[in-house]
Each structure stands twice: as structure tokens, then as C-alpha cells.
């Protein structure tokens, strides 16, 4: 298996069963994966901030930066590659509260809200959600079987969601 790394504020799509998509250290950010177990197409995004209103120009340049542009873009790209909405296995991870105290650093709360809004409005269900807590997470999407792995506090949890 080969690892393909998804950087902070980046996105990758794959249909290669020999790949594992991975994104490291999701703190207050949000990581989203989508996988269609029938056509075996999937993708992962590591988005950083809640809303493209902050800088629309930047959002056009790089939609993966903002939750409200990253998730629609990921959805568009996987469905364009043949993934079907009804079969889509969606997961999300992140939104940890690493910094205690003042609200202005609560980027994680705003990120999570933006994320849940999108899925509710578009009637897409989330199969696994690992959010909150006080620690960063690393996530993996295994393209051969759709397994979703969350590494947090040095422990790996593997979720077999595509059987």
C-alpha cells in the first residue's frame, strides 16, 4: 500500500485500490472522507476555517481552505468520478479544542457547525464522526476496502464501514 498525504488545506481524490489517503494532525480543523464501496472512488479533505466569506478570492483559488467550499468541492469531485450519492460513506474527524479559554480561538466550534450545516442541508448522512476532545487526530482512508482509521492519543481505531 502507498500513502498519499493530504496537506493542511488540501484535498485528494483516488480510485487506486493500492493507496491509503492520510492527513496528519487535525487540530481545530476538519477532515472529511467520502468513499463509494461499489465503484471504489473516494477522497479526503483537510479544511481549516469555517467560511469562505473571510476571503472569497482565496476560496476560489483553493476551496479546500474553507469548510463551506471544501466539502461541496469534495462531493462534486467524487461524484464526477462516478461515486453515487446514495452509496457514499461519509466520515468526519477533528474539531478538537486544543486551546482552552477564550472564544475567539474556538475555530473548532465554528468549523463543526459549518460542516454539519452542509450535510444537513444536502441530506447526506455521516457514517462516522470523531470530533471534539482535546487532542489532534490523524486519519486514514484505505482505498482497497474503504476502512477509515482514526489515530488519536497514540491509539488507532479502525472502522470498517463499507462491508
Amino acid at each position: 500500500m502507498q500513502y498519499r498525504v493530504v496537506d493542511l488545506s488540501d484535498m485528494e481524490i483516488s480510485d487506486d485500490a493500492s493507496e491509503i489517503l492520510v492527513t496528519y494532525s487535525i487540530g481545530s480543523c476538519i477532515g472529511v472522507t467520502m468513499f463509494d464501496p461499489v465503484v471504489r472512488v473516494g477522497g479526503m479533505v483537510h479544511c481549516m476555517l469555517p467560511s469562505c466569506k473571510l476571503d472569497p478570492e482565496k476560496a476560489t483559488e483553493n476551496p479546500a481552505l474553507f469548510v463551506d467550499t471544501a466539502i461541496p468541492e469534495l462531493y462534486d469531485r467524487v461524484t464526477r468520478c462516478g461515486a453515487g450519492k446514495s452509496r457514499l460513506v461519509v466520515t468526519l474527524a477533528g474539531a478538537a479544542r486544543i486551546i482552552q479559554g477564550h472564544g475567539m480561538f474556538r475555530i473548532e466550534e465554528r468549523n463543526l457547525r459549518a460542516c454539519e450545516e452542509f450535510f444537513a442541508q444536502n441530506d447526506i448522512s455521516i457514517r462516522k464522526s470523531c470530533t471534539g476532545g482535546y487532542e489532534g487526530r490523524t486519519i486514514f482512508l484505505n482505498m482497497s476496502n474503504g476502512n477509515f482509521t482514526v489515530r488519536c492519543g497514540g491509539k488507532d481505531e479502525v472502522y470498517e464501514l463499507s462491508e
Binding site: G27, C29, Q100, I107, E135, G136, G154
Partner: peptide, 29 residues
């Protein structure tokens, strides 16, 4: 730290200075 950029030891946290936020007149945006 909030964004987990190159942060190490699990379970680490540092205190945020409320005073610094006030002095710098920092907004969420």
C-alpha cells in the same frame, strides 16, 4: 497549537493569556 501545526507530546496544553487578547484587541475574524 489550535491548528496542531507541528505540535508534539500528546496531552500537552498551554495557557492562553486573556490579557494579551485584550491588549492586541484581537477579534475572531
Amino acid at each position: 497549537y489550535a491548528q496542531s501545526v507541528g505540535t508534539g507530546v500528546k496531552g500537552v496544553h498551554y495557557d492562553l493569556s486573556e490579557e494579551a487578547l485584550v491588549h492586541l484587541n484581537l477579534q475572531a475574524e
